[in-house]
Amino acid sequence: MRADLELIYDWIPDDARILDLGCGDGTLLAALARHKNVTGYGLEIDPEGIAACLGRGVNVLEQNLDDGLGNFVDDACDLVIMTQALQVLRRPDAMLDEMLRVAPECIIAFPNFAYWKHRLHLTFRGRMPVSRSLPHAWYDTPNIHLSTFQDFAQLCRDKGVTIVDEAVGSAEHEGHWTSRLWPNLFGETAIFRVRRGR
């Protein structure tokens, strides 16, 4: 499992009802179902991902996140997860509202644009960063709303959303003291666990 998914896996309690936005091939949901008795649905638009989910017995719905979560009632589940999708959404702020409407708590993971390698790239090459977590060129990237660890924390404060937990993931710096001390600088992937209200 991907490093960010492993961390998220640990954060999810047994028997939770969850919604995984951009669930990919269903790896996380399948593991949670098998070992933690978690139930729920994945949302995905990639047909190959959908086929993989079905093969794993994961409930998956073809649904574009930009269309919202209107088919889920308030408090439809315990927890909403969204990994590597925040930055491709038309309105990430509206999605945060939607996520906290259908569940009291959500976990969001996204590439941290303030990661030191990205800063170096921009500062010294004077060009848009291209990295392992941001592999696209500026002209063909699906990432239209890149943000930083700090930006997201600020959005939560502005919206009156409580940050329950925060972490950064990175193959090189995971668990390293630098990323714990300066997550905005040394975290390649930002992971937030937030709760509705203050």
């Binding site: 959908i50 994961v58 088919n71 009632v73």
Partner: peptide
């Protein structure tokens, strides 16, 4: 089909959906 899917979700049932191109 989405109406059916939404109703299944409201009823808390297990459902998967794809709109095939």
């Amino acid at each position: 089909s989405r109406e059916l899917v939404s109703a299944l979700l409201r009823a808390g049932k297990a459902v998967s959906y794809i709109n095939v191109d």
